[in-house]
Structure formats: structure tokens, C-alpha cells
């Protein structure tokens, strides 16, 4: 256990030393800022448009004017864009840090020396996973704090304690989703000898999970899958897409993430569902994601057992 913690803290220190963590945090803060700004400008304008519409209708003698429809929108809708940013950028950055985590050791040639010490391969891999997990959790926590704090500044956003609960579950889900990709990066950096191929394979998996599987299951084009607005206009599953949805559902992690996040934040149908309802309705998806993470940890441990440190140098 002690060795695992030492390796985990070494992993975190390495990320700080390489300044990777600053870059990742910077990108996440940029994403949060972009999402907040887009929501702020849109909501402010939409509110002003409503007031202008009221004046316009009054001038034409209309008395019965409906309530501002923006008031019926869940407060967390301003987080909509974050779902897409995590799906794309978060996952991609996670692949990179997972990949670099083991490649760093391979490049330095330290592995041959390291395993002559009383360090088991199991504690090494668990240390790596713990280190990566802590960093991702830290980055997501900072993003969560800033996002929630900035949402208080948005107009028409009366965020309640319950909303904060929804947001926190969303950020934890995002953390799990990113951890999955970080572990993909880690696994292939152990298994594959070529550094670029080790990065290329998880990127292909990312493309597959983010675009190809949802496209096969819904018929939506890649850009439509990235647009919170078009996601609301999901076509009815018919014929092939109906079958594909059933067949591909167990592995469509990206689609599960988008659906669950949409329900938590209220972007799906512009109504947020209670946390318990989301968790119970999607328990299979949550178990699938956790099981995938667990499987990747086990596979990484097995791959490391078979890894020969003498052949650990980089092959191109």
C-alpha cells in the first residue's frame, strides 16, 4: 500500500513538473469560461427579447401574455456545453495523460532499474491508476467549483442545493468517463511498442466511442452529435437504428455519458430528472462504465506482468 501511494504521488509530481497539469487545468477553465459566456450572453439576450416581445404585444392590445418561458428551463442548462467539451476535449486530454504516464517511464529507461527494487508490478500499476485518478478528480473538482460559482452570476439562474447535487453527480460522471480514457491511454502505452501507435489506438477508440457508435445507433451525423440543440431533436429509432441501438448499447459509453448528463442537467427535453431516477434508470450504463474502468485496470496489470523492462525502450 505504501509503495502504491509513493508511486501515485510520484505520478502527480511528474504531471506538475511537466506542466501538463497546468495545461489541462487551463483548457478546462477555458472550456468553463466559454460555456459560461455562451450561456450568459444567450440568456441575457433571450430575456431582453422576451421583454421586447411583451412591449410589442401590449402595443397591439394583447393582454394575455404567457410567462417568460426561460423561467421554466432548469438552471443547469447553462452547463450544456460542458457535456460536449468533456466528451471531446476532456476524453482526448485524458488519453494523452494516460499515454504519457507510462511512456515517460519507458523513455527514461527507469523501468529496468525500478523493478530490481522491492516494487511489485501490481503496486506500480495501482499507483499509476491512483495518481491519474487523483489528478483527473482534482481537475474536475476545480472545474466544478468554478462552474457552479460562475453560474450564480448568470441571469435567470436560481441554482438550488438540489441543482448543485445534480451538477456534482454530473462532474463525478465526467471524471469516471475521463478516467476510462486515461486508462485506455495507459493500457496501450504498456502493450504497444511504438509510441505513436500507442497513442493512435486509444484515439481511434475515442473516435469510435464518440462518433461512430452513436452515429450507428441514432443515424445522427458527427456535428449533430456535438450540438446540444440538435441532440434534442433526436430522430425516432426505426429499422436498422433500432436494432443497432440494442446491439451497440452496451459499448456506447459516449452515448450513455451524453444521455445521463443531459438528464442530470436538464438539457434533455429541457427538464432535469431527479438524481435517483437517473441513477436507477441508467444503472446498467453506470455499471458498464465502472466495469470498463475495472477491466482496463486489470488488463493494465496483466499487461505489465507480461511487460519485459529490458525491451521497454521506445520503438518507432
Amino acid at each position: 500500500m505504501e509503495t502504491t501511494l509513493i508511486i501515485a504521488s510520484a505520478e502527480i509530481r511528474a504531471l506538475f513538473r511537466e506542466k501538463t497539469i497546468y495545461a489541462i487545468t487551463g483548457v478546462f477553465l477555458l472550456m468553463t469560461a466559454a460555456a459560461s459566456f455562451i450561456s450568459w450572453s444567450t440568456f441575457t439576450t433571450a430575456d431582453a427579447v422576451y421583454r421586447a416581445s411583451v412591449v410589442y404585444l401590449h402595443a397591439r392590445g394583447v393582454v394575455a401574455i404567457p410567462e417568460n418561458p426561460l423561467h421554466s428551463i432548469p438552471a443547469l442548462v447553462s452547463f450544456d456545453n460542458l457535456i460536449i467539451y468533456v466528451l471531446l476535449i476532456g476524453a482526448l486530454l485524458a488519453v494523452i495523460i494516460g499515454h504519457r504516464s507510462f511512456m515517460r517511464e519507458r523513455r527514461s529507461g527507469i523501468l529496468q532499474v525500478l523493478f530490481t527494487r522491492p516494487v511489485s508490478m501490481r503496486s506500480f500499476i495501482f499507483g499509476k491508476v491512483l495518481g491519474l485518478g487523483s489528478v483527473l478528480l482534482g481537475v474536475m473538482s476545480i472545474t466544478a467549483i468554478i462552474s457552479i460559482a460562475s453560474s450564480f452570476l448568470l441571469p435567470l439562474q436560481q441554482i438550488s442545493i438540489e441543482d448543485i447535487g445534480h451538477a456534482l453527480v454530473f462532474f463525478f460522471l465526467s471524471f469516471l468517463y475521463m478516467l476510462f480514457f486515461a486508462l485506455c491511454g495507459l493500457l496501450f502505452s504498456i502493450v504497444v511498442k511504438s509510441e505513436s501507435l500507442a497513442l493512435f489506438i486509444p484515439i481511434c477508440i475515442w473516435v469510435g466511442i464518440t462518433f461512430v457508435l452513436p452515429e450507428l445507433a441514432t443515424g445522427l451525423t458527427p456535428t449533430a452529435l456535438l450540438n446540444p440543440v440538435t441532440l434534442l431533436q433526436l430522430p425516432v429509432a426505426e429499422g436498422f437504428f433500432n436494432t443497432a441501438q440494442h446491439l451497440l448499447s452496451p459499448v456506447s459509453l459516449g452515448w450513455h455519458y451524453t444521455t445521463m448528463s443531459g438528464e442530470l442537467l436538464g438539457s434533455s427535453f429541457r427538464t432535469s430528472f431527479p438524481i435517483l431516477r437517473v441513477l436507477t434508470e441508467h444503472w446498467i450504463e453506470i455499471v458498464t462504465l465502472c466495469a470498463s474502468i475495472f477491466t482496463l485496470v486489470i488488463f493494465s496489470a496483466i499487461a505489465l506482468q507480461r511487460f519485459d523492462p529490458r525491451e521497454g525502450s521506445i520503438h518507432e
Binding site: 466559454a34 433571450a46 456545453n81 456535438l226 446540444p228 440543440v229
Partner: peptide
């Protein structure tokens, strides 16, 4: 990824189902 979607996401009419 961000800018091409802005037209839709910032469209006032798209804010309500």
C-alpha cells in the same frame, strides 16, 4: 468544435423546446 455550433446554441429561439 465550439464556434461552428455557436450559431445554434446562441439562437434565442432554440432556448425553449
Amino acid at each position: 468544435l465550439i464556434v461552428p455550433q455557436i450559431g445554434d446554441t446562441m439562437d434565442t429561439d432554440n432556448q425553449v423546446p
